[in-house]
Amino acid sequence: MSHYVLKRVQKLPISLDLAWDYFSSPDNLAEITPSYMGFEVLSNSDSVKMYPGQIITYYVKPLLGIKLFWMTEITHVADKKYFVDEQRFGPYTLWHHTHFFKEIPGGVEMRDQVHYKLPFGPLGDLVHGLFVKKQLEGIFAYRNQVLEKKFGRFGG
Score class of each variant (00 low, 15 high):
Met1Glu: 12
Ser2Met: 12
Ser2Ala: 14
Val5Glu: 14
Leu6Tyr: 14
Lys7Met: 10
Arg8Ile: 02
Val9Leu: 13
Ile14Trp: 03
Ser15Cys: 04
Asp17His: 11
Asp17Met: 00
Asp17Ala: 14
Ala19Pro: 02
Asp21Glu: 15
Asp21Ala: 13
Asp21Met: 11
Tyr22Ala: 08
Tyr22Trp: 10
Tyr22Leu: 09
Ser25Gly: 11
Pro26Gln: 11
Leu29Cys: 08
Ala30Ile: 06
Ile32Arg: 05
Ser35Lys: 14
Ser35Pro: 03
Tyr36Ala: 07
Met37Asp: 03
Gly38Thr: 01
Gly38Tyr: 01
Phe39Ser: 10
Phe39Asp: 02
Glu40Trp: 02
Glu40Cys: 07
Val41His: 01
Val41Phe: 06
Leu42Pro: 07
Ser43Asp: 10
Ser43Pro: 06
Asn44Gly: 11
Asn44Asp: 15
Ser45Gly: 07
Asp46Val: 05
Asp46Phe: 11
Ser47Gly: 15
Ser47Ile: 02
Ser47Lys: 13
Lys49Gly: 05
Lys49Leu: 13
Lys49Ala: 15
Tyr51Lys: 15
Tyr51Ser: 15
Pro52Glu: 10
Pro52Met: 12
Gly53Ile: 11
Gln54Pro: 00
Gln54Ala: 13
Thr57Ala: 13
Tyr58Asn: 14
Tyr59Ser: 07
Tyr59Trp: 12
Val60Gln: 12
Val60Lys: 06
Pro62Ala: 03
Gly65Phe: 03
Phe69Ser: 12
Phe69Pro: 03
Thr72Ile: 09
Thr72Trp: 00
Ile74Phe: 12
Ile74Asn: 09
Thr75His: 09
Thr75Pro: 03
Thr75Tyr: 13
His76Glu: 15
His76Asp: 14
Ala78Gln: 14
Lys80Cys: 02
Lys80Glu: 10
Lys81Glu: 15
Val84Asn: 09
Asp85Gln: 05
Glu86His: 08
Glu86Asp: 09
Gln87Ile: 02
Gln87Pro: 01
Arg88Thr: 05
Phe89Ile: 13
Pro91Met: 12
Pro91Val: 07
Tyr92Glu: 12
Thr93Lys: 15
Thr93Asn: 13
Trp95Cys: 11
His96Arg: 13
Thr98Glu: 13
His99Thr: 07
Lys102Ala: 09
Lys102Ile: 04
Glu103Trp: 01
Ile104Ser: 03
Ile104Tyr: 05
Gly106Thr: 09
Val108Phe: 01
Val108Ser: 06
Glu109Pro: 07
Gln113His: 06
Tyr116Thr: 00
Tyr116Val: 07
Leu118Met: 10
Pro119Asp: 04
Pro122His: 02
Pro122Gln: 08
Leu123Asn: 03
Asp125Ser: 10
Leu126His: 02
Leu126Val: 12
Leu126Gln: 08
Val127Glu: 05
Val127Pro: 01
Val127Asn: 01
Val127Thr: 08
His128Gly: 00
Gly129His: 09
Gly129Ser: 13
Phe131Asn: 04
Val132Pro: 04
Lys133Tyr: 01
Glu137Cys: 02
Ile139Phe: 01
Phe140Met: 09
Tyr142Thr: 09
Tyr142Val: 08
Glu148Tyr: 06
Glu148Asp: 13
Glu148Thr: 11
Phe151Ala: 05
Gly152Ile: 05
Arg153Lys: 14
Phe154Cys: 04
Gly156Asn: 14
